[in-house]
Design a protein around this nucleic acid. Structure first.
Length: 543
RNA sequence: GGGCCCGUAGCUCAGUCAGGUAGAGCAUCCGGCUCUUAACCGGAUGGUCGUGGGUUCAAAUCCCACCGGGCCCGCCA
């Protein structure tokens, strides 16, 4: 079987785009602000299009990459996200006019979109955000709205073939925005003056009767999608699996665009969603439902390129399940492996995968790969180290640890130190917030009889000696303390291995752990002494 | 009714598009430091690849049917 012509899935799609012979492309993605912007949302609407945009530019094409932000949408939050009373009060109102439930921003849109604006550059996203409430003011959009209203019977006919005749006669493809209360979901059209471009409406929410211009409306969403294609001249747009079903919204929109506007719809492909594993259950991420792992939350524990690598190395229709507990270290290890493969330091199990892995690595790095393989340390190792150094800000201490463990042999360049510092803080946050118990360095407060049983009489003797040693210990010299511990162990005729095992059992409840002397100093010798003292007491007097 | 995804080691998942005879991490167990721990190194244990057919020299991979889980098609990407 020839391996020539095997390409990453994204490049195969780009080949299809290039085959059209077009010189310039507009690539669009959509961003609803129904709640927090989560990492699943980024996948098909922002990250994949970013990779496509770069690939097209590399092929010499002119590319405009935009993200359409749906600010002209009504509120449709669910109770998991905001209180029932808030929903009752604001449901159906344009989110731009809904206050921030937490009171820290101008309005609903600001509250949820600000984190995106704050972080999108860190994710390497270069797409230009475009707000729909601003597009509606655009002359071309007004003309498109007018066109839709004029051709509403034709549009109804086409859509009804997909919706089972649900749209009744007299249907209008728009909802006016209520001037008085911001309702944009349930306003009723009383009259339309095509000459003046005015819609008379009644608002059931506040009772207001008024007139709306064609810039103060929202198109029914299928019509809106098509109108945006028309106005923004979109050539490429991917679509979520909800739109992908045969006879679903994308199909009907394509037909609407062809028949009504006589244009070819954008090229694209469907992509799957990302679900979130919470307490062993897997739930689809949902902005409006408040089931989310946000862009910020990811940045607190992971490198952006790691998330991007995951998305690019997986095919778009794979359903991904994100598990903050295991997934974070796992994805970082996968990324490190890809990095080694990219730089030829390791062979993948399946040689064919090299192409996908290398390309996904490039894409994850926005086609700007590091000049040489960066220093790598296992994520979970950093998580442990981060807990036993004086502070996660102290990168030098971490570097020292990594030298001790033999992970680090060469001198680090400045950018590698910066990278390590970033990852160290993230690993620390992860271990505190999500990690399973065995990654946590947790000091036992109580004397456990089962452990006492296991360490035996010699063990108790050792604990007593070490307790005495630590009770009055002064200074921060780890090497000196280590020597003392060692001599206590030897003094009792125990092997170091066994002796340390006993101490770890008593202090951490397990047979091993971080290097002991620095750990004791970090925790405080007197605290450790009192723990050991409790064991000695229980051994002497029982419970 | 139509469409999609998943089912692979105790756990979390790669591998399916481009068929070559099962992988990784974690967990468990064993061994290795004549100044100690393992977070390192080496090794082991561990899988009817959901089930049954078919195509093929060859199937986790392609085709068909079925079982189990999740989802979409009513304004959450």
């Amino acid at each position: 079987m020839s391996r020539q012509g095997i390409k990453h899935w994204l490049d195969r799609f780009v080949d299809r785009l290039l085959a059209t012979g077009k010189k310039r492309f507009v690539i669009s993605g959509g961003m609803a602000i129904s709640g927090p912007i989560h990492i699943g949302k980024l996948r098909g609407e922002v990250i994949y299009p970013s990779g496509i945009a770069r690939a097209l530019r590399r092929a010499g094409k002119e590319v405009r990459h935009i993200v359409v932000v749906y600010t002209q949408d009504p509120l449709k939050a669910k109770e998991r996200l905001v209180p029932r009373s808030f929903i009752n009060e604001w449901s159906g109102v344009r989110i731009l006019d809904v206050p921030d439930p937490w009171g820290c921003h101008e309005n609903w849109v600001e509250h949820f979109f600000e984190p995106y604006m704050k972080h999108y550059e860190e994710y390497g996203i270069t797409a230009t955000p475009i707000m729909t409430h601003e597009i509606y003011k655009d002359r071309r959009m007004v003309e498109t709205v007018r066109f839709f209203i004029k051709n509403r019977e034709r549009a109804r006919e086409i859509l009804n073939r997909y919706k089972g005749g649900k749209l009744g006669p007299g249907w209008f493809p728009v909802r006016p925005l209520c001037k008085k209360c911001g309702n944009i979901r349930t306003t009723k059209i009383l009259d339309y003056d095509g000459e003046k471009g005015l819609i008379r409406y009644m608002c059931p929410r506040c009772g207001h009767v008024g007139e709306a211009r064609l810039s103060d409306v929202k198109l029914e969403w299928r019509a809106e999608w098509v109108a945006l294609w028309n106005v923004l001249e979109v050539d490429v747009e991917l679509y979520g699996k909800d739109h992908a079903a045969a006879g679903g919204s994308r199909d009907s929109c394509n037909e609407l665009y062809r028949k009504l506007f006589g244009k070819e719809p954008p090229m694209g492909f469907p992509f799957e969603w990302v679900s979130l594993k919470v307490d062993g259950r897997s739930l689809e991420m949902s902005s409006s439902g408040g089931i989310v792992f946000t862009m910020d939350e990811w940045l607190e524990v992971g490198l952006p390129e790691v998330l991007k690598y995951w998305y690019y190395v997986m095919r778009p229709m794979s359903h991904l399940e994100f598990d903050p507990v295991h997934g974070v270290p796992h994805l970082h290890e996968e990324y490190s492996r890809a990095e080694r493969i990219y730089f030829g330091l390791e062979e993948p199990a399946d040689p064919d995968k090299i192409i996908d892995i290398r390309r996904a690595y490039e894409l994850a790095n926005d086609d700007k790969v590091p000049p040489k393989p960066p220093f790598q340390a296992p994520y979970t190792l950093l998580a442990v180290i981060s807990q036993i150094i004086p502070s996660t800000e102290n990168v030098d201490a971490a570097i020292e640890k990594l030298r001790q463990t033999g992970h680090l042999k060469d001198e680090l360049e400045e950018w590698e130190v910066a990278r390590l510092a970033r990852l160290l803080r993230k690993a620390y946050t992860w271990v505190k917030r999500y990690a399973p118990k065995h990654y946590r360095v947790e000091i036992r407060e109580e004397a456990d009889p089962a452990i006492l049983e296991r360490i035996g009489e010699d063990g108790v003797k050792l604990l007593k000696e070490v307790e005495t040693l630590l009770k009055d210990w002064e200074g921060r010299d780890a090497v000196k303390l280590e020597e003392e511990l060692y001599s206590k162990i030897r003094g009792l005729g125990l092997s170091p291995k066994k002796g340390f095992r006993i101490l770890y059992m008593a202090i951490l409840g397990r047979g091993s752990g971080p290097k002991l002397a620095p750990l004791i100093l970090a925790v405080g010798p007197r605290k450790i002494a009192s723990i050991l003292g409790r064991y000695v007491e229980v051994a002497a007097h029982g419970l």
